[in-house]
Design a protein around this nucleic acid. Structure first.
Length: 251
DNA sequence: GCGACAG
DNA sequence: ATCTTGTCGC
Protein backbone atom coordinates (compact mmCIF):
# COMPACT_ATOMS: atom_id res chain seq x y z
CA UNK A 1 0.00 0.00 0.00
CA UNK A 2 1.15 3.56 0.34
CA UNK A 3 1.22 6.68 2.45
CA UNK A 4 -1.74 9.08 2.40
CA UNK A 5 -1.47 11.71 -0.32
CA UNK A 6 -4.19 13.88 1.13
CA UNK A 7 -7.46 14.07 3.01
CA UNK A 8 -10.71 12.87 1.47
CA UNK A 9 -13.09 15.44 2.89
CA UNK A 10 -12.74 18.43 0.64
CA UNK A 11 -14.90 21.06 -0.96
CA UNK A 12 -15.40 20.67 -4.71
CA UNK A 13 -12.98 23.48 -5.44
CA UNK A 14 -10.35 22.01 -3.14
CA UNK A 15 -10.77 18.66 -4.87
CA UNK A 16 -10.26 20.28 -8.27
CA UNK A 17 -7.13 22.06 -7.10
CA UNK A 18 -5.85 18.76 -5.74
CA UNK A 19 -6.46 17.04 -9.05
CA UNK A 20 -4.43 19.71 -10.81
CA UNK A 21 -1.63 19.08 -8.34
CA UNK A 22 -1.72 15.28 -8.60
CA UNK A 23 -2.24 14.87 -12.35
CA UNK A 24 1.44 15.42 -13.24
CA UNK A 25 2.33 12.67 -10.76
CA UNK A 26 0.55 9.99 -12.76
CA UNK A 27 3.14 8.17 -14.86
CA UNK A 28 2.33 7.61 -18.50
CA UNK A 29 5.25 5.31 -19.21
CA UNK A 30 5.32 1.55 -18.73
CA UNK A 31 6.70 0.25 -15.48
CA UNK A 32 4.99 -3.10 -15.65
CA UNK A 33 6.93 -6.09 -14.50
CA UNK A 34 5.65 -9.59 -15.10
CA UNK A 35 1.92 -9.80 -14.79
CA UNK A 36 0.56 -12.77 -12.86
CA UNK A 37 -2.44 -11.23 -11.15
CA UNK A 38 -4.89 -8.68 -12.54
CA UNK A 39 -7.45 -6.90 -10.38
CA UNK A 40 -10.86 -5.56 -11.31
CA UNK A 41 -12.41 -2.76 -9.22
CA UNK A 42 -15.90 -1.30 -9.13
CA UNK A 43 -18.21 0.47 -6.73
CA UNK A 44 -21.94 0.04 -6.29
CA UNK A 45 -24.56 1.62 -4.02
CA UNK A 46 -27.37 0.43 -1.80
CA UNK A 47 -30.15 1.99 0.24
CA UNK A 48 -30.76 4.97 -2.01
CA UNK A 49 -27.04 5.54 -2.28
CA UNK A 50 -26.57 5.76 1.48
CA UNK A 51 -24.24 2.79 1.46
CA UNK A 52 -21.21 2.44 -0.75
CA UNK A 53 -20.18 -1.03 -1.82
CA UNK A 54 -16.61 -1.56 -3.08
CA UNK A 55 -15.68 -4.76 -4.88
CA UNK A 56 -12.24 -6.01 -5.88
CA UNK A 57 -11.65 -9.23 -7.77
CA UNK A 58 -8.24 -10.79 -8.41
CA UNK A 59 -7.80 -12.92 -11.53
CA UNK A 60 -4.90 -15.10 -12.54
CA UNK A 61 -3.15 -14.36 -15.82
CA UNK A 62 -3.43 -15.80 -18.42
CA UNK A 63 -6.22 -18.05 -17.22
CA UNK A 64 -8.36 -15.05 -16.25
CA UNK A 65 -9.95 -17.10 -13.49
CA UNK A 66 -11.01 -15.36 -10.26
CA UNK A 67 -8.76 -16.33 -7.35
CA UNK A 68 -9.91 -13.88 -4.66
CA UNK A 69 -12.79 -11.50 -4.02
CA UNK A 70 -13.39 -8.77 -1.47
CA UNK A 71 -16.51 -6.69 -0.88
CA UNK A 72 -16.38 -3.77 1.53
CA UNK A 73 -19.33 -1.67 2.65
CA UNK A 74 -19.34 1.73 4.32
CA UNK A 75 -21.49 4.88 4.52
CA UNK A 76 -21.40 7.02 1.40
CA UNK A 77 -19.33 10.17 1.90
CA UNK A 78 -20.33 12.59 -0.79
CA UNK A 79 -22.64 13.07 -3.74
CA UNK A 80 -21.68 12.23 -7.28
CA UNK A 81 -20.22 15.15 -9.17
CA UNK A 82 -18.98 14.59 -12.73
CA UNK A 83 -15.22 14.99 -12.64
CA UNK A 84 -14.93 14.31 -8.91
CA UNK A 85 -15.93 10.66 -8.93
CA UNK A 86 -12.70 9.46 -7.34
CA UNK A 87 -13.35 11.31 -4.10
CA UNK A 88 -16.64 9.46 -3.73
CA UNK A 89 -15.41 5.99 -4.64
CA UNK A 90 -11.74 5.59 -3.74
CA UNK A 91 -12.01 5.61 0.08
CA UNK A 92 -14.14 2.47 0.02
CA UNK A 93 -11.99 0.88 -2.68
CA UNK A 94 -8.87 1.35 -0.53
CA UNK A 95 -10.51 -0.50 2.35
CA UNK A 96 -11.32 -3.38 0.05
CA UNK A 97 -7.71 -3.52 -1.14
CA UNK A 98 -6.47 -3.66 2.45
CA UNK A 99 -8.29 -6.93 2.90
CA UNK A 100 -6.62 -8.68 -0.04
CA UNK A 101 -4.14 -11.41 0.83
CA UNK A 102 -1.93 -10.48 -2.12
CA UNK A 103 -1.27 -7.52 -4.36
CA UNK A 104 -2.12 -7.46 -8.10
CA UNK A 105 0.37 -6.54 -10.83
CA UNK A 106 -2.19 -4.59 -12.83
CA UNK A 107 -5.52 -3.00 -11.89
CA UNK A 108 -8.51 -2.30 -14.13
CA UNK A 109 -10.90 0.30 -12.78
CA UNK A 110 -14.49 1.02 -13.82
CA UNK A 111 -14.12 4.65 -14.88
CA UNK A 112 -11.68 6.97 -16.63
CA UNK A 113 -7.90 7.12 -16.39
CA UNK A 114 -6.45 10.28 -17.94
CA UNK A 115 -9.54 10.70 -20.14
CA UNK A 116 -10.64 13.32 -17.66
CA UNK A 117 -10.92 17.14 -17.79
CA UNK A 118 -7.91 17.46 -15.47
CA UNK A 119 -6.30 14.19 -16.56
CA UNK A 120 -6.94 12.52 -13.21
CA UNK A 121 -9.84 10.12 -13.44
CA UNK A 122 -10.59 7.56 -10.74
CA UNK A 123 -8.18 5.02 -12.29
CA UNK A 124 -5.28 7.48 -12.25
CA UNK A 125 -6.07 8.65 -8.73
CA UNK A 126 -6.36 5.12 -7.36
CA UNK A 127 -3.14 4.13 -9.09
CA UNK A 128 -1.27 6.92 -7.31
CA UNK A 129 -2.55 5.82 -3.91
CA UNK A 130 -1.79 2.16 -4.48
CA UNK A 131 1.39 2.84 -6.45
CA UNK A 132 0.23 0.20 -8.92
CA UNK A 133 -0.27 0.18 -12.70
CA UNK A 134 -3.90 1.03 -13.46
CA UNK A 135 -6.12 1.19 -16.52
CA UNK A 136 -9.43 3.00 -16.81
CA UNK A 137 -12.26 1.05 -18.45
CA UNK A 138 -15.39 3.19 -18.73
CA UNK A 139 -18.73 2.48 -20.33
CA UNK A 140 -19.22 6.12 -21.27
CA UNK A 141 -17.07 9.07 -22.28
CA UNK A 142 -16.52 11.95 -19.85
CA UNK A 143 -14.74 14.39 -22.14
CA UNK A 144 -13.06 14.52 -25.52
CA UNK A 145 -14.31 13.46 -28.92
CA UNK A 146 -13.75 10.76 -31.51
CA UNK A 147 -14.70 9.54 -34.96
CA UNK A 148 -16.72 6.46 -35.72
CA UNK A 149 -15.45 3.19 -34.33
CA UNK A 150 -15.16 0.31 -36.84
CA UNK A 151 -17.62 -2.47 -36.19
CA UNK A 152 -15.32 -5.52 -35.91
CA UNK A 153 -14.45 -6.64 -32.39
CA UNK A 154 -11.04 -5.37 -31.31
CA UNK A 155 -11.10 -2.28 -33.54
CA UNK A 156 -10.69 1.13 -31.96
CA UNK A 157 -10.47 4.87 -32.58
CA UNK A 158 -8.45 7.40 -30.59
CA UNK A 159 -10.27 9.59 -28.08
CA UNK A 160 -8.83 13.10 -28.26
CA UNK A 161 -9.40 16.29 -26.33
CA UNK A 162 -8.39 19.91 -26.60
CA UNK A 163 -5.14 20.68 -24.87
CA UNK A 164 -5.58 21.54 -21.19
CA UNK A 165 -3.27 23.19 -18.74
CA UNK A 166 -2.90 19.87 -16.90
CA UNK A 167 -1.22 18.36 -19.96
CA UNK A 168 2.59 18.19 -19.81
CA UNK A 169 4.44 20.83 -21.80
CA UNK A 170 5.74 18.19 -24.20
CA UNK A 171 2.49 16.38 -25.01
CA UNK A 172 2.18 15.02 -28.52
CA UNK A 173 -0.46 16.82 -30.58
CA UNK A 174 -2.22 15.36 -33.59
CA UNK A 175 -2.85 17.14 -36.89
CA UNK A 176 -5.73 19.07 -35.33
CA UNK A 177 -3.61 20.09 -32.37
CA UNK A 178 -5.47 17.75 -30.02
CA UNK A 179 -4.22 15.44 -27.28
CA UNK A 180 -4.87 11.71 -27.30
CA UNK A 181 -6.34 10.74 -23.94
CA UNK A 182 -7.61 7.23 -24.63
CA UNK A 183 -9.28 4.91 -27.10
CA UNK A 184 -12.85 4.00 -27.96
CA UNK A 185 -12.69 0.22 -28.21
CA UNK A 186 -15.21 -2.03 -29.92
CA UNK A 187 -15.02 -4.75 -27.30
CA UNK A 188 -17.95 -6.55 -28.85
CA UNK A 189 -19.77 -6.31 -32.15
CA UNK A 190 -23.09 -4.55 -32.21
CA UNK A 191 -22.42 -2.91 -28.84
CA UNK A 192 -21.40 0.63 -27.96
CA UNK A 193 -17.61 0.97 -27.65
CA UNK A 194 -15.96 1.24 -24.24
CA UNK A 195 -13.47 3.92 -23.21
CA UNK A 196 -9.95 2.73 -22.41
CA UNK A 197 -7.43 5.17 -20.97
CA UNK A 198 -4.18 4.74 -19.05
CA UNK A 199 -4.36 5.41 -15.33
CA UNK A 200 -0.94 5.25 -13.71
CA UNK A 201 2.41 3.62 -14.57
CA UNK A 202 1.20 2.46 -17.99
CA UNK A 203 1.17 3.78 -21.55
CA UNK A 204 -1.79 4.22 -23.83
CA UNK A 205 -0.65 1.38 -26.06
CA UNK A 206 0.00 -1.09 -23.27
CA UNK A 207 -3.25 -0.22 -21.52
CA UNK A 208 -5.20 -0.98 -24.67
CA UNK A 209 -3.29 -4.21 -25.26
CA UNK A 210 -4.11 -5.51 -21.80
CA UNK A 211 -7.78 -4.65 -22.04
CA UNK A 212 -8.03 -6.42 -25.39
CA UNK A 213 -6.17 -9.40 -23.96
CA UNK A 214 -8.73 -9.62 -21.15
CA UNK A 215 -11.79 -9.52 -23.39
CA UNK A 216 -14.19 -12.42 -23.34
CA UNK A 217 -17.36 -12.44 -25.39
CA UNK A 218 -18.94 -9.67 -23.34
CA UNK A 219 -18.71 -5.90 -23.58
CA UNK A 220 -16.48 -5.50 -20.54
CA UNK A 221 -13.09 -7.18 -20.00
CA UNK A 222 -13.17 -9.97 -17.41
CA UNK A 223 -11.63 -8.07 -14.47
CA UNK A 224 -14.09 -5.19 -14.69
CA UNK A 225 -17.01 -7.42 -15.59
CA UNK A 226 -16.58 -9.59 -12.49
CA UNK A 227 -16.03 -6.61 -10.20
CA UNK A 228 -19.13 -5.02 -11.69
CA UNK A 229 -21.24 -8.04 -10.82
CA UNK A 230 -19.94 -8.17 -7.29
CA UNK A 231 -20.42 -4.46 -6.70
CA UNK A 232 -23.97 -4.45 -8.01
CA UNK A 233 -24.82 -7.65 -6.14
CA UNK A 234 -25.77 -9.59 -9.24
CA UNK A 235 -23.38 -12.40 -8.42
CA UNK A 236 -25.05 -13.03 -5.07
CA UNK A 237 -28.52 -12.79 -6.47
CA UNK A 238 -27.87 -15.46 -9.07
CA UNK A 239 -26.25 -17.68 -6.51
CA UNK A 240 -29.21 -17.26 -4.22
CA UNK A 241 -31.74 -18.02 -6.92
CA UNK A 242 -29.83 -21.14 -7.88
CA UNK A 243 -29.79 -22.31 -4.25
CA UNK A 244 -33.52 -21.78 -3.98
CA UNK A 245 -34.00 -23.82 -7.12
CA UNK A 246 -31.84 -26.64 -5.80
CA UNK A 247 -33.72 -26.63 -2.53
CA UNK A 248 -37.03 -26.73 -4.32
CA UNK A 249 -38.32 -23.51 -2.74
CA UNK A 250 -39.47 -20.25 -4.25
CA UNK A 251 -41.69 -20.44 -7.35
C1' DG B 1 -23.71 32.36 -21.93
C1' DC B 2 -24.76 27.44 -23.69
C1' DG B 3 -24.08 22.47 -23.62
C1' DA B 4 -21.82 18.22 -21.60
C1' DC B 5 -21.47 15.58 -17.82
C1' DA B 6 -17.37 8.61 -15.60
C1' DG B 7 -20.50 6.16 -11.63
C1' DA C 1 -25.16 4.35 -9.69
C1' DT C 2 -30.30 2.57 -8.97
C1' DC C 3 -35.51 1.27 -9.77
C1' DT C 4 -37.09 -3.27 -13.10
C1' DT C 5 -39.85 -8.07 -17.16
C1' DG C 6 -39.94 -9.47 -20.91
C1' DT C 7 -38.06 -9.68 -25.23
C1' DC C 8 -35.33 -9.42 -29.62
C1' DG C 9 -31.20 -11.35 -31.72
C1' DC C 10 -26.53 -13.80 -32.49
Amino acid sequence: MRQPLHDWTLTPQQAIDLQRHLAPRAERSDRLGEVHIIAGVDIGFEDDGTTTRAAVVLLSWPELVPIEEVVHREPTRMAYIPGLLSFREIPAALRAFERLSQSPDLVMVDGQGIAHPRRLGVASHLGLWLDLPTVGVAKKRLCGGHGEVPEPRGEWTPLTDRRRKEDPADVALDAEGRVTIGAMLRSREGVKPIVVSPGHRISQTTALEWVIACLGRTKLPEPTRLADRLASRRGQRFKHERMQGELGIGE
